[in-house]
Design a protein around this nucleic acid. Structure first.
Lengths: 246, 246
DNA sequence: TGTTTTGAGTGGACTAGACCACCGCCGAGA
DNA sequence: TCTCGGCGGTGGTCTAGTCCACTCAAAACA
């Protein structure tokens, strides 16, 4: 159901944002150059100043423009292709990078939560969870090993079959209307143990990037807690940081 | 100069934000509970709705409240103590965590940029840079080894003496009025080479978390490019991710 | 009794103004 | 020629409203 989601009329400030971005990318406004003042953009786009400013604010946050109080808005000199690391799953992220991802489910089951998942999902240890262990491949080479935990009562009919065909995030969004909005990640480097070394086809003790992620929905309930072990020779994580307080 | 910056009258939406946050922290509004509607807050704070909404938007971004269209604003059940990783330097970050940081300058010099710093700082390879190598300690135990590059012509009188007393970020902010607003980080795991292993007092080949960070100022010029090698047994990095597009 | 409709209340988007602080330029006066 | 004050343009903040879509419960209806 809801495979063809209703696409609402694009918001005005989004249209302005996209239009300005396009003008900058096509060099109608060049690096270092001043763009029309907010009051002029108001007239150009037939929008109010607050709406124009909402579009400009987004461009500013993304580093596309910068502002000088009392002077104007300027196109940034370098068009940095850096993004906030976002909430896409493994499959989508790899596809976005033009790679060919696949997954192999090594384990799928329902069981009592136990301590680690319970703490991270903020549920009782006696509640049931799904445990999903997957090997992530890129061009059929092992890239990462992943253990995911999800509260079972929230997603009653999660099916192994679906998971082999579709991405977990897609299933959650489409079948359970889950809106994932935030996540918390902890990254560390470890030397791998025997078990994971064997799965990833590396030597025991090789450096591995461990990412522990808890994903939260709009109502702040935990959707998923997942630990990923990335082969250090094939993966690195990029982050875009902004000043605190905004 | 400018040691006692002029503190402008607090902005109204900031005052509302702080007031609401205080009410939530003091349990005047409890978890899961609906807070007054935007139109009521308008009256309570004698502010316009857009201003109230700006305060609410910040609370929402920080996960303190969540919204239900057509229903109201609600206090989040769990007050998650998770923050966007911010732009503080090593010293401040460790202090914030209640640790006792110190630094040892292993090298301080001015030289031609060379390829890696030039690319990351977006300057010519023939331009001069500072190279600063520091050992970072916590409770006098080696924690990280760090190589920082800064464009020399932008910070003409950077001094080794100052650096031993003050944090680099503080010097840049106070003496050069640099406003650092964004950074880009790449994290990976490696096994250390002999040189760094010796400095960090670990065995060659031990897993180490490598963080490469480029910091940008308000005008999008690169302020600093720094590579840090963190001992994996003593350090992990935490990140707070939000949905793409905001 | 069970179902449907309606409407009050909510957040979401947007408007058309207001006033302020700040920047940079230009012209008057020294 | 040089300095300095004024002033127009700019972004920063805020107001007081509009119209919309959505939710939910009470009222009207079958």
């Amino acid at each position: 159901m809801n495979n063809q989601p209703f696409q609402p009329q694009k918001l005005l400030h989004v249209k302005i944002y996209e239009s300005l971005l396009e003008k900058i990318h096509s060099n109608q406004y060049n690096g270092g150059e001043k763009i029309p003042s907010e009051r002029d953009l108001e007239k150009i786009y037939e929008a109010s100043r607050e709406t124009v400013r909402r579009a400009l604010e987004r461009l500013r946050l993304e580093g596309v423009i910068f502002k000088k109080t009392g002077v104007g808005n300027f196109v940034s000199e370098k068009k940095l292709d850096i993004h906030s690391r976002n909430l896409t799953g493994f499959t989508d992220e790899m596809k976005r990078r033009g790679l060919n991802p696949s997954s192999k489910i090594l384990f799928f089951g329902r069981e009592k939560a136990g301590e680690l998942p319970a703490v991270n999902l903020d549920i009782s240890e006696t509640e049931e969870i799904y445990r999903i262990e997957r090997l992530r491949l890129v061009d059929n080479e092992p890239m990462a090993f992943e253990i995911a935990y999800l509260p079972a009562n929230k997603y009653p009919d999660l099916d192994k079959q679906d998971l082999e065909k579709l991405s977990l995030y897609k299933i959650l969004a489409e079948n359970y209307a889950v809106k994932m909005v935030r996540a918390f990640e902890v990254l560390e480097a470890i030397g791998v143990d025997d078990k994971i070394a064997e799965i990833l086809l590396v030597k025991t003790g090789s450096p591995v990037l461990v990412v522990r992620r808890t994903v939260f929905a709009e109502d702040n309930s935990a959707v998923e807690f997942v630990t990923s072990y990335y082969r250090a020779d094939r993966y690195r994580a990029t982050f875009y940081l902004t000043k605190n307080g905004l």
